[in-house]
Simulated scan of single mutants.
Amino acid sequence: MQALLDYTDRQSGESPYLTSIDRMVIMRSDQPKPPSHLIFQPSMCIVAQGAKWATFGTDSLEYRAGQALVIGVETPSTGRVVEASPGKPCLVLAFELDLAVMRSVAEELGRPPRMAGEAGRGVLVTDFQGALADCALRLVRLLDTPTAIPTLYPVVMREICYWLLAGPHGGDIARLTLANSPSQPVIRALHSLRERFRETVRIDDLAAIARLSVSAFHRQFKALTAMTPLQYQKQLRLLEARRLMITHAANVETAAYQVGYESPSQFSREYGRMFGIPPKRDAMAMQAAIAEERATATVAARRTPAPPR
């Protein structure tokens, strides 16, 4: 925890803080925060202090200090910091999981983890103590010696994969990440839906990709994501539309059509239900917040004294 505090104390700007390790960020919150919407890649979010919750479809998971959220499939989520204060900020270390490394480590295990017979939930909370906590500490310490990262980071990541597969949730981790697991046919269909989310996609076609009956596919997809395929697609569309309006200044109608909606009014209704605010107002508020954050960072940079020569 102290290593994360020290690191964030040295940073300028706002959390999340990018690091010199690719696809690893450190997040610090000095107070509880409202929900944020994002799309998770397969990753791990470790809470060193404080508490967060994340919602995936109908499932809500809380993870606290000493615990980690493990995400095994690409999926939309809503996250929120629920326990934080200036004297005891919420500190989170997050990094993507390399599934190729996970598979390589699994092949070297003398006894592979036992997997359930059907696709299960795509996210889980696990304790992050002992050897895993030591790995996380070494990752943070590596940031002080960037030249060592290319050599040592792959070693630490392999160790993390080993302890996850050898731990109490090893079967769940294996089911989500290994190529021969019962979840992989449904995950292949999920990837197809992800790539084609702007199109009108038939559930029959997705079930055919998974080589399952429609009813079995629907059941296993919902078990994996806590959403139906159509709910999953809708969230992808709305998140992409939000990105287009905020980062590319697309108007409501343009954003709606670009993500696959035929009716801007239907888009606005569904957007409001998901984000709690009409799309135009939401985009304007987010753009104003980003502009304010950039202005604050610029002022802070100007006030920082130049290093002595």
Rank of each mutant, 00 (worst) to 15 (best):
208 A>Y: 06
180 N>R: 07
100 A>D: 07
71 I>Q: 12
175 R>S: 14
144 D>S: 05
256 A>H: 10
145 T>G: 00
132 L>R: 11
136 A>L: 03
148 A>I: 01
128 F>Y: 13
300 A>L: 03
130 G>R: 04
51 A>Q: 08
179 A>Y: 07
196 R>K: 04
208 A>N: 05
107 E>F: 00
71 I>A: 14
55 T>L: 07
227 M>R: 14
148 A>F: 07
126 T>D: 13
48 A>E: 10
239 L>S: 11
195 E>H: 07
197 F>M: 08
53 W>H: 05
162 Y>M: 07
145 T>A: 06
115 M>P: 02
247 T>C: 09
70 V>R: 03
162 Y>E: 09
124 L>E: 13
65 A>P: 05
78 T>P: 04
295 A>G: 01
271 Y>T: 02
191 H>E: 14
94 A>L: 08
33 K>S: 12
151 T>C: 03
64 R>C: 13
200 T>I: 02
163 W>E: 14
105 V>G: 01
161 C>W: 05
142 L>H: 00
123 V>C: 08
51 A>Y: 02
219 R>F: 06
308 P>H: 00
161 C>Q: 05
163 W>T: 01
203 I>T: 15
179 A>W: 05
84 A>D: 05
73 V>H: 05
195 E>I: 03
45 C>R: 08
8 T>Y: 06
2 Q>G: 06
255 A>D: 08
9 D>K: 00
6 D>A: 07
143 L>C: 07
188 R>D: 14
27 M>P: 01
147 T>E: 13
158 R>G: 02
142 L>M: 02
307 P>A: 03
66 G>D: 13
20 S>K: 06
218 H>S: 15
90 C>K: 04
205 D>G: 08
236 L>M: 14
210 A>R: 12
87 G>D: 06
27 M>S: 08
159 E>V: 02
242 R>H: 07
140 V>W: 00
81 V>P: 05
112 P>G: 12
269 R>M: 10
236 L>H: 13
163 W>I: 01
27 M>Q: 07
121 R>W: 11
291 A>Y: 09
10 R>G: 10
125 V>W: 04
72 G>K: 09
103 R>M: 01
51 A>W: 01
114 R>Q: 11
13 G>H: 03
50 G>F: 02
217 F>S: 08
206 L>C: 10
5 L>S: 12
79 G>V: 05
238 L>H: 14
231 Q>L: 05
62 E>F: 12
108 E>M: 04
119 A>M: 11
186 V>K: 09
229 P>L: 13
83 E>M: 08
247 T>R: 14
244 L>N: 04
251 N>I: 08
165 L>F: 03
19 T>N: 00
196 R>C: 03
237 R>Q: 15
1 M>K: 09
178 L>R: 09
65 A>S: 15
246 I>E: 14
4 L>W: 05
282 D>N: 11
157 M>W: 06
158 R>D: 01
7 Y>F: 13
31 Q>G: 02
197 F>K: 03
165 L>R: 00
275 F>P: 02
180 N>V: 00
244 L>F: 15
12 S>F: 01
227 M>P: 02
45 C>D: 05
72 G>S: 11
58 T>V: 11
253 E>Q: 15
299 V>Q: 06
297 A>M: 00
48 A>S: 12
110 G>F: 03
76 P>L: 10
229 P>F: 15
150 P>H: 06
103 R>D: 13
261 Y>A: 07
160 I>V: 14
192 S>N: 13
294 R>Q: 12
99 L>K: 15
